[in-house]
Amino acid sequence: MNNVEIVYKKSEGLTDKYLSYCPGCTHGIIHKLVAETLVELDLIDRTVGISSVGCSVLNYDFFTCDMQQAAHGRAPAVATGIKRVRPNSIVFTYQGDGDLASIGIAEAIHAAHRGENITIVFVNNAIYGMTGGQMAPTTLIGQKTTTSPNGRDAKTQGLPLKIAEMMATIPGATYIERVSVHNPSHVRKAKKALIKAFSIQMENKGFTLIEFISTCPVNWGMTPKDAVDWAVDNMIPYYPLGVYKDKTAGEEK
């Protein structure tokens, strides 16, 4: 019985460090997909990842590639700094919605605007997770958070920001897609999106951003299963999945 075949294993793009994420959070799946993508495209030993401020701040310990930790919201600027001096390196940022959609919106927009040849992995769970569940620009109308205790009110707190749609309007951006990881079929689609994005970067074709619909069971006050259902029932209708921009469309496969 020596014909043992390994059909699945942890990606070589991930270290053995214990992940710091709460049970049921989808960061773990997204980390796996990013790591698998970098390994499968044979990029992991020429990649620098940028950890941002938020739940994923410690992910410099989780990926096996070089990592640099960035100030809140500044990851796209840090990525720009690296990519411009080391253009043969693959550079990605990993940012939450508080980091990218609020404090770092200028850096995200202008990295796209300059057409920086970097990839942004944007994780939208409609809340500030690390700081304990405050309202984010992406918090849904009526959603209760520690700073919108009566539910987000559009009159005083504005309407949730649609990052993929907005980034797709920027002339310099090359590829923008929104994906979800709420079931295996969508996990596979999400990986395809990452492969597309990193392939575009490999070919020096410019700025790519993949938005992930994610969950925060702890700060949403739900079980992991209920959180996934809530994301499907409430987030995806407001944040529809799909490709929002693809400058490479029509090019030969």
């Binding site: 690296i82 390196s89 202008h110």
Partner: peptide, 15 residues
Amino acid sequence: IAAINMVYGAAGAGA
């Protein structure tokens, strides 16, 4: 703010 964070990135890459 972006400029100094670019400096931070490039310095981290050894430039």
